[in-house]
Design a protein around this nucleic acid. Structure first.
Lengths: 213, 213
DNA sequence: TATAACCGACAGGCTGTCGGTCAGGAACAG
DNA sequence: CTGTTCCTGACCGACAGCCTGTCGGTTATA
């Protein structure tokens, strides 16, 4: 039997199914057939709404990251909170790895696995594009307040975020010892690059890492 | 007609073909059929020597990066040259992007293109694993000589190399203005993180970037 | 003559296309 | 207000065409 729905609703259903499947099996191992079956639609319908499998991935990433970044922005702009604390909260708001009912939780878990290179790459790029400007804005505020002293707020943030998302990543397998040293080094480097007082970032950043990066 | 060769020779032929094809069309768009045709062998032969398409990719990356890293190591260990200069030369020795007849030249060009997520990921990881320890060794030498002052040679190097290979990458499209600012920031950050004298890295690093990263 | 290297047909899976179908609202007549 | 017609956005599923990896059988050569 044939069920007709509004385009946006169907699209959303398809994305829901894709999200679950990509989360469970990864992007490459999920076939469009799997998605069809789960949504309960025919091949043609899928390709009526999306032009390719990769198009589904793009839409899904946008849906997930859009929500994520929007939340981060909201946290970041609450000027009643001190800058450093706001940076911590902004980053925490995106800590999808640990929270349970966070948006896209399973997908981002899956992203770390060896397969899914494409998914990983796209999510990382999109996240970087979204997050770096927000955090860089906070760094500039810190500059203005005299908490930080960096001539390159954007580039500094870029460097720190890139390092963090790459190295503190499940794929980067490392012993707890290496991990601890990297965290230590990272905090030290953050202070150096931001021009923050030595030791001033230890406590806040430790909070971030405790929740598991 | 049937031509029999030694396993190593055939393997090498297959890798040659794969290298050319991956360079021209990328990994994902190259089919095993393309490789068969170019080498002039049958399907079964290919799978006699390699267990999967991805296995070919892995072998190819190892062949390319192995040569690259070996060369870099050689440059790095020539103790008659000052440390900073040796760092420059080591990096230059791997500047595959600009040289013409360098090993794996086209492949690495191709790697930057939007497709080929898997290839990009694997090459980057393998390069990082190979290069970082070598450069970190040089940083330690610099530390010992009092040119640098960093408590985390490995982690610092890791951060700098990771940033460089990611941001100064064709895929990261940016205007010449942004690029220039990023280079400027990068040099400044390098000095800060390595604990080098301010301005001391400008000239050497400019040489590196001039040859086009 | 043993076996390493080779062959090619074939199974099974996948993505994307395309001509055709159908539901349900708009428009219009009665 | 009700019945009818028509239009079109949403939907269907068979199918073409590609792909990877397997396997039983074949041949060169040491």
């Amino acid at each position: 039997m044939r069920i007709v729905k509004e385009a946006e609703e169907r699209k959303s259903e398809i994305l829901d199914a894709a999200e679950e499947l990509f989360a469970a099996k990864g992007y490459e191992r999920t076939s469009t057939g799997d998605i069809l079956e789960r949504v309960g639609i025919a091949r043609g319908t899928l390709y009526y709404h999306f032009k390719s499998k990769e198009d589904i991935l793009d839409a899904l990433i946008e849906r997930i990251n859009g929500t994520l970044i929007a939340g981060a922005k909201k946290v970041a702009e609450d000027q009643s909170i001190p800058v450093v604390e706001r940076i911590v909260r902004t980053i925490m708001s995106m800590k999808v790895d640990s929270g349970e009912d966070t948006i896209g939780h399973e997908v981002i878990q899956q992203v770390h696995k060896p397969q899914n290179a494409l998914m990983h790459q796209k999510m990382q790029q999109s996240l970087l594009d979204g997050v770096v400007p927000v955090l860089a804005g906070l760094v500039e505020e810190g500059n203005a307040q005299g908490v930080f002293h960096t001539g390159f707020p954007l580039e500094t943030t870029e460097m720190l975020v890139l390092y963090a998302v790459t190295v503190f990543d499940d794929r980067f397998q490392q012993t707890p010892g290496q991990m601890k040293k990297r965290v230590q080094a990272f905090i030290h480097h953050t202070e150096k690059l931001l021009g923050a007082k030595e030791g001033s970032m230890t406590a806040p950043m430790t909070r971030i890492f405790q929740q598991g990066f």
